[in-house]
């Protein structure tokens, strides 16, 4: 009984520590508040179920972010939104951006930037969000996405370029 209490207590500590950063990371991937809330709950259930796999505190952040990223990607795949916006089906993400009641569309530049991010291929989008918004080191990003440090750097570089080109093309002369 005591062992199970310790397990639950550790999960609760992780909830306190990572609830907000994970919510925003997930939200930037799935766009709507309602979906982000569902994915966040799934994430912490998975964290709780697999807590014994957490090696040490040094890898804690990468480990929880990896679970959150995988849950968000699974969610998008199930909703057939896991493609770049070059595919017609993926336009649902853009629609969600404008339709979600918990999205503030008043700042055009901020919205344009999110449109640009949502148009990126999944890996570039994930890497960009983790680097730009979460300010994670490339080593952790590589661990989270299952890629290499050099691949993460390359993805981030190309993501920034594409975002910049998209936004500047939408700004009137």
């Amino acid at each position: 009984m005591r062992l199970f209490s310790l397990h639950t207590k550790t999960t609760e500590e992780l909830i306190e520590r990572y609830q907000q950063p994970l919510y925003w990371h997930i939200r930037r991937m799935v766009v709507t508040h309602e979906d982000a809330q569902d994915v966040l709950q799934n994430t912490f259930i998975q964290i709780h179920l697999h807590l014994s796999e957490l090696r040490d505190e040094d890898h804690e952040r990468a480990w929880v972010y990896r679970i959150a990223t995988n849950e968000a990607l699974l969610w998008l795949r199930d909703k057939r939104e896991l493609v770049s916006l070059e595919d017609e089906d993926a336009s649902a993400l853009l629609k969600n951006l404008s339709a979600d009641p918990y999205t503030d569309n008043s700042d055009r530049l901020v919205v344009l930037m999110q449109e640009a991010i949502l148009r990126l291929p999944t890996m570039q989008r994930t890497v960009f969000n983790l680097r730009y918004y979460d300010e994670l080191p490339y080593e952790e990003i590589a661990s989270i996405t299952g890629s290499s440090v050099s691949a993460a750097k390359t993805n981030y570089h190309y993501a920034k370029e594409r975002i910049s080109n998209y936004v500047t093309s939408k700004i009137p002369q």
């Binding site: 999960t11 609760e12 919510y23 925003w24 508040h33 918990y102 999205t103 503030d104 730009y132 918004y133």
Partner: peptide, 29 residues
């Protein structure tokens, strides 16, 4: 644009969301 945007996003949450969500997550666990 990155300097201009300063890491803002258009995403918002309902008021008090994180407090209630934390309790709900702990209850679910």
């Amino acid at each position: 644009i990155f300097e201009q945007v300063q890491k803002q996003t258009p995403y918002r949450t309902p008021e008090g969301f994180f407090d209630t969500e934390e309790q709900e997550l702990k209850r679910a666990i």
